[in-house]
Design a protein around this nucleic acid. Structure first.
Length: 397
DNA sequence: GCTCCTTTGAAGCTG
DNA sequence: CAGCTTCAAAGGAGC
């Protein structure tokens, strides 16, 4: 199940079971479905908007926003002429990249997969954090790794770097400015920083913090965590097991996406100042003047407890969500999907779009990029196909 | 703008 | 191997 392969046959439509937690039904309800229709045919005559300049993206003299990824032409800018794709925002997607949901964007090295600017009528695409999402003609997916199923259709990923050098890259930014060089350096450092996967408790507090914050608004974040710690301890073994399993999946997924990575690499990267705190034994206050009252109220409040219990009812959905690498689906007619992988640029393979020949020039150009990428991938990477299910492809770096 | 606070758990380090 | 340290998340507070 978690060996990196996609057991399509075990999946339920609308769920990403092959990449645990990659999909959230809960998140689906937050997706502005009606606002993001996917055109069923190629919108002809769409003109790409110019790639924003550095100053446009990040303002003068400042590091561009990490999500801006100025070297990548986003689907928003490419296809804003139709389909309201331009309304897609990370916030809409609510992609909490899962274990990586709170990972910084630099951990999604999508910027290494530049999308050529010169494709005025490229196939409809989606992005998440600038990761291009496109649909390929049937048969193209054979050399790609399936990462899940959305609306009954397989979602594949395309490892970063497989795009051929011939792919025209986005304009290079002027890096003569020393501050920009510094920004580049910082961003490079950021990209190299891989956060550790969350443990079970981290997953728990991430899910339940909003509820606790509502209950005890007057408390600081530290006190909220104390409450969460109490609630965590009050959970049954079965309830906690859900999070342990989820954390295990996160860890395995993290290991797949970052082979060779160790928490050791992060040591010192977030080193705290010399602690002014008392030794750990006396660090925790036995009683917090304010928090203790609230804590007692929260703990004893049957309503709150009921709320927490009810939360666990929806836990199943949310549980899968919290690892969510980002999965978005749209209405059943357009059946779009967005997925995101920390090490891959995502490609949505589907036979819905048979690339129209009337757009042969631009589409062929666009297609060439993908074809070359897939070919490059299959020829250079250690792709293996599951003997049990031909839809299963594993990509080993 | 950086660090602390606060929780639990996982992993690495040290003796 | 036991015990300690660091870091995952979160955001307000303090320096």
């Amino acid at each position: 199940m978690y060996s990196g392969q996609c057991h399509v046959g075990t999946m339920q439509p609308g769920h990403l079971h092959c990449q645990p937690g990659a999909y959230s039904q809960y998140r689906l309800y937050q997706w502005p479905v009606s606002s993001v229709p996917i055109p069923m045919s190629h919108p002809a005559g769409l003109q790409p908007e110019p790639v924003p300049s550095h100053s446009e993206v990040g303002g003068s003299g400042r590091c561009p926003p990490q999500r801006a990824a100025p070297s990548v032409l986003t689907a928003t800018s490419m296809y804003s002429g139709q389909g309201h794709v331009g309304t897609m925002q990370p916030g809409h997607l609510h992609c909490q990249p899962g274990a990586y949901s709170q990972y910084r964007p630099y951990q999604w090295p999508v910027s290494r997969v530049p999308i050529p600017v010169s494709h005025p009528a490229a196939p409809p695409a989606h992005t998440y954090n600038n990761a291009p999402m496109v649909r390929l003609p049937e048969g193209f997916h054979q050399n790609l790794q399936c990462v899940g199923i959305i609306n009954g259709e397989p979602v594949f990923t395309l490892p970063a770097g497989v795009f051929p050098p011939s792919v025209p890259a986005a304009p290079q930014l002027n890096t003569s400015n020393s501050q920009e060089k510094k920004c580049e350096s910082e961003q490079e450092d950021d990209r190299l920083y891989i956060k550790r996967p969350p443990n079970a408790f981290m997953l728990y507090i991430k899910e339940h913090r909003p509820h606790v914050e509502e209950d005890v608004k007057m408390m600081g974040n530290g006190a909220v965590n104390m409450v969460l710690g109490q609630r965590w301890k009050s959970l049954s073994a079965e309830e906690r097991a859900v999070y342990y399993q989820q954390a295990q999946r996160e860890k395995e997924l993290h290991a797949q996406q970052h082979p060779g990575w160790s928490v050791r690499q992060n040591y010192g990267k977030k080193r705290k100042r010399e602690s002014k705190r008392a030794p750990k034994a006396s660090k925790r206050p036995s009683v917090l003047p304010v928090a203790s009252t609230s804590l007692a109220a929260v703990t004893e409040d049957s309503t709150s407890r009921a709320a927490v219990t009810e939360d666990s009812t929806s836990m199943a959905a949310v549980t899968e969500d919290s690892t969510s690498r980002a999965a978005v689906t749209e209405d059943s007619t357009s059946r779009g999907a967005v997925t995101e992988d920390s090490s891959c640029s995502s490609v949505y393979v589907s036979d819905i779009y048979h690339l129209p020949q009337e757009n042969s020039v631009s589409s062929a150009s666009w297609l060439h990029v993908l074809l070359t990428a897939v070919t490059s991938l299959s020829s250079s990477a250690g792709l293996t196909q599951s003997p049990a299910d031909e839809r299963i492809w594993s990509y080993t770096k």
